[in-house]
Design a binder for these strands. Structure first.
Lengths: 210, 210
DNA sequence: CCGGTTCTGGAGTTGACACTCCATTCTGCG
DNA sequence: CGCAGAATGGAGTGTCAACTCCAGAACCGG
């Protein structure tokens, strides 16, 4: 992107600090609700520094999208690795619900909220968000594909479609949870689609406490 | 609310024009992206008129939320009446997908987008959106409850939870559809949850082309 | 048709915010 | 150590948007 001036170690650290501060503020207040001044104050830098590292606010937002994408996908990776079983799906569900409880249902999905706010006003950012969601969907699909390869799911199951359905349920559940300040929506959404996967499963299911 | 000054017939018409114009602009550009000036221009009124009918922008936004709630639920009512069969669910799904095609996937859900943008910055508006979603979920639940009363669904099915799961899938599908500019996500989301309902159904299903 | 209220137009005012400029200090490399 | 380029501070600047004011026109009940 803007790699004209090479970044020194210190510069890179400052840049990261700005992105992290912006991500935090934009997560709770939204992009429009956080001014560059707020970001500077939170990051402990001056305005000239922000514009030294980013051409404009839009460029900063793009960096925030990239940052949030990693921030979401990276910690989920160990859970993704277990999505080839119904138990793994349930563990993933529980972890997602726990996160919302810890956050008191504030903010919704860091990627989905950005996407919703930016979709119609910043096409570049929109595409970045799409890429993030594609990676997310692919991780889910890989789990389902492994499940199917193992013979636990019928070969007729379209794992791409099913993964997209699960991701959509997750996003809608997070949205309703944020708005209603209650995780019941997220739980209902994920339980519904996971129950559907379980129903498709040909393997006998072990009983789990609930 | 602000019913201090009684509204005359003409005044009511002007007020409605303002709300409709604001709703249209905020649907595509977002709340933060539409200025009161834009709204005045679109409605063909002067700035003083807007502030004659609304205390401030926040009050206008509240009116827009109410407007969009009716705008969504009212045209869906005939479809809601048929949600007591799997065929009815599929007809509803098709109608929702058609709307997105006509809109070229722009804007997402008029209520969900508002909720996402306002949840953390306007608690009153947030609660209004929650009420709208509650009505939406209740309509779906009523269909499922009728289905269960008819004996088509097992009595063990929690229709409230299932309705919430369906609404969440719809919202997530709309979000992903808006961001990716493709209705596959909405289709996958609704098809997944409807397939789940069909699987729960005890009645023999008639074959439908797809 | 008349008096009070509502409605409308248009020109302010105020503050916030994205972005800039330039001088100074620091960093890394040879 | 010396210098080119990067990093920083702080004080602007111009624009735009939310909101106000007041005078005049339209409305409506009696």
């Amino acid at each position: 992107m803007t790699d004209g001036p090479r970044l020194t170690r210190k510069g890179l650290a400052t840049r990261s600090r700005i992105v992290a501060a912006a991500a935090g503020l934009m997560f709770t207040r939204g992009v429009a609700g956080t001014s560059t001044e707020d970001v500077c104050a939170a990051a402990g830098v001056s305005s000239s520094q922000l514009y030294h590292y980013f051409a404009d606010k839009r460029a900063l937002v793009r960096a925030v999208v990239a940052h949030q994408t990693e921030q979401i996908l990276t910690p989920q990776e160990p859970l993704f690795a277990r999505l080839d079983t119904v138990d793994g799906l349930r563990a993933w569900r529980d972890a997602l619900v726990d996160v919302q409880h810890e956050r008191r249902c504030v903010g919704g999905c860091p990627l989905g909220s950005l996407g919703s706010e930016l979709a119609e006003i910043d096409d570049g950012a929109r595409v970045d968000v799409v890429d993030g969601f594609a990676r997310w969907a692919a991780a889910i699909r890989d789990g389902l594909a492994a499940m199917r390869a193992r013979g636990a799911l019928p070969v007729t199951v379209d794992v791409d479609e099913l993964a997209l359905g699960i991701l959509a349920a997750l996003q809608g559940g997070l949205l309703l949870t944020e708005i209603s300040r209650d995780t019941v929506a997220l739980e209902a959404a994920l339980d519904t689609v996971i129950a559907h996967v379980a129903a498709l499963t040909t393997e006998p299911e072990e009983l789990v406490g609930g």
